[in-house]
Simulated scan of single mutants.
Amino acid sequence: MSDLFVARSLEEIRFWSRIMKEHSLFLRLGFRCEDTQLIHEANHFYAIFEEIERKSHAFQTNADPQTIKQFNVEVYTAASHIWAFKRKVLGLILSCQLPGANNFPLLVDHVSREANYFRNRLAELNAGRLEPLPDAIIDENVFFLKIMADHAKFIGHLLDPSERKLVDQARNFSHDFDQLVFQAIDLSSMRPQSQTVPLLSQFVDQNKVSVKSLRDFKKTARDLINDCRIKSIIHPLLADHVFREAEHFLVILDMFEHFLQGPKRSES
């Protein structure tokens, strides 16, 4: 179990510290020139999570669990601080104190939800109290389906309006994932009666098909942006960022599928 704790902790930190680092960059790019204090804070968080990412890759999976537990506490503190920074920025935007800045309120809320998810996961790992699998299947899907729906909305708004076909595709994905979010919330409200293997299996399979389609769309958009073949104000790193998050969600869905199939997988 100690080896699993170390592996899971490092996996989460390696993925999410890079995400947090990139959030700092995206927020900074959206601030106005005169927002020097906010720019300074964003740069500070970029440096913090860059160092956390570096340290996470320096550890091996045979590292001392107590050392990793202490590292988790350090990272939890950093995640809590960047969460507070993001919520502060959201408050400034919603109270019209940053007129002309380019960070959508939904985007700032989105990145704060991811920071909160990250710190909660670290707390769960350190406490040794990960959710039971049936609860995790529903809660992870509610969280990530909303993330995917948000991504589709951001892509649709950041593409040039003249890219009509791609904008329409993004809007369609936004609608589809909104529906999946509502379905996930409905399944959640029916707990525990809804947590049967057949229902959860169908739930995971359906979501996996949709996430794969969105992942492929994001990959295409990323490649077109990198090749300067479409018109948009999407930063190439942002295009890759949302693609990686879809890939991460698919890994989680694959894990759920594996557990739900159980012995049948090994028999086939």
Rank of each mutant, 00 (worst) to 15 (best):
V204M: 10
D109H: 14
T196A: 13
S213H: 12
S268I: 12
I230R: 07
H241S: 00
R229F: 00
P99K: 02
A79P: 01
R32G: 03
S9Y: 01
F249Q: 05
L238V: 10
L107P: 02
F26Q: 06
L238S: 13
P192I: 04
H151R: 02
F203I: 10
S9F: 02
K86R: 08
F256W: 09
K231E: 09
D227S: 10
F143R: 02
A7G: 05
F118R: 08
G30D: 03
N207Q: 13
E50D: 14
H241Y: 07
S80E: 14
R265H: 10
E140V: 12
S9R: 04
N43E: 14
M20R: 01
I138K: 09
A239G: 14
D216S: 08
E53R: 10
S268G: 08
R129C: 14
L166S: 09
L187N: 04
A101H: 01
R244F: 05
Q202V: 07
S95M: 04
I252C: 00
V181A: 07
K146I: 08
S189W: 09
E247W: 05
N102T: 02
S112A: 15
H241F: 08
Q195E: 15
T36Y: 02
V89M: 09
D109L: 12
I137R: 04
Q202F: 13
A152E: 03
R87K: 15
Y76K: 15
L253E: 06
S213M: 11
M20C: 05
D240S: 13
G262A: 13
Q60M: 06
T220Y: 04
L145T: 15
I39K: 15
E257D: 15
R129S: 14
L25K: 14
R171M: 09
V211E: 01
L238D: 05
D64W: 03
M20N: 03
F26A: 02
